[in-house]
């Protein structure tokens, strides 16, 4: 479970009188849930994600979260000198190095895990290639496979579709839902697109001015058709407060 209890955040370099980027944020996400944080730029949604990832500490408040958290980055954050295979194995090898020698997975086990998630994300045929040889969508799939390979309890996705064209983003979002349904990991997606949030997740948190402004359970049955009436109604329902002052 992920639980934020009256969390505030002020960046150290802003000084003690600097603005709060998060104000009194409280929410709970159950294990295996697929949720999203949407909101305008600078609203604090990525800061929430970074706190869950352990990249930032809250200024005040209590955060409860599992230890095993993995993240997919907006830019992909792939290492250009490593092949796709080695990029997927990057976190796995680091995790293996921290384990006692007796428990450390063998190279063949690592190969097996990398192969499993490469297949799940649809990049099996590119394992010997390098990130620069691949498209933006394929790179994001490598990032997802790298995150899944460490077998996390929580998968965080920071605007994974923002640099992709509409078709690629749609295909990836469809596959992301399949991956969630197959793995049942807790998924927290940050997006500025209400449509993507409604298409992928089961609960949408609208973040405004550093706090959770609204929370929307999405109960449309899957597969969700973006042209369907129920889908459009949900999107409009969120859009109104999203754009209001």
């Amino acid at each position: 479970m992920i639980k934020f209890d009256k969390v505030t955040k002020r960046y150290d370099d802003a000084g003690p009188d600097g603005p709060l980027v998060l104000r009194n944020v409280s929410f709970e996400i159950a294990d295996g849930e697929c949720v999203s944080l949407v909101g305008p730029s600078g609203c604090g949604k990525t800061t929430i994600l970074r706190i869950i990832a352990g990249l930032e500490q809250p200024t005040t408040g209590i955060v409860t979260k599992p230890d095993r958290v993995a993240m997919v980055f907006q830019s992909g954050a792939l290492l250009p000198w490593l092949s796709v295979y080695d990029n997927i194995a990057f976190g796995l090898r680091a995790k293996a190095a921290r384990e006692p020698a007796a428990k450390r997975p063998s190279e063949s086990r690592i190969r097996e895990i990398v192969g499993t998630y490469a297949e799940m994300t649809g990049i099996s045929e590119f394992l010997d290639r390098y990130p620069r040889d691949l498209s933006g969508g394929q790179r994001q799939r490598i990032g997802i496979a790298r995150a899944l390979a460490v077998d996390p309890d929580v998968l965080l996705l920071d605007e994974p579709f923002s640099a992709l064209d509409a078709k690629t983003a749609h295909d990836l979002s469809v596959d992301l839902v399949k991956i969630w349904q197959e793995t049942r990991k807790t998924v927290v997606l940050v997006s500025h697109s209400i449509e993507q949030a409604v298409a992928i997740t089961n609960r949408v948190f609208l973040i405004k001015d550093g706090t959770v402004a609204h929370e929307y359970p999405i109960s449309i049955p899957r597969p969700r058709h973006e042209q369907g009436e129920a889908f459009m109604n949900e999107v409009m329902n969120i859009r109104r407060p999203f754009f209001s002052a």
């Binding site: 080695d86 090898r93 190279e107 499993t116 099996s124």
Partner: peptide
């Protein structure tokens, strides 16, 4: 590592990896 889905991939990586440990 037991929580990973059963590996049924058909991919074989041929490179040798030598990661110094100490």
């Amino acid at each position: 590592m037991a929580r990973h889905p059963a590996g049924k991939h058909r991919y074989h990586h041929h490179s040798e990896f030598t990661y110094p440990t100490s």
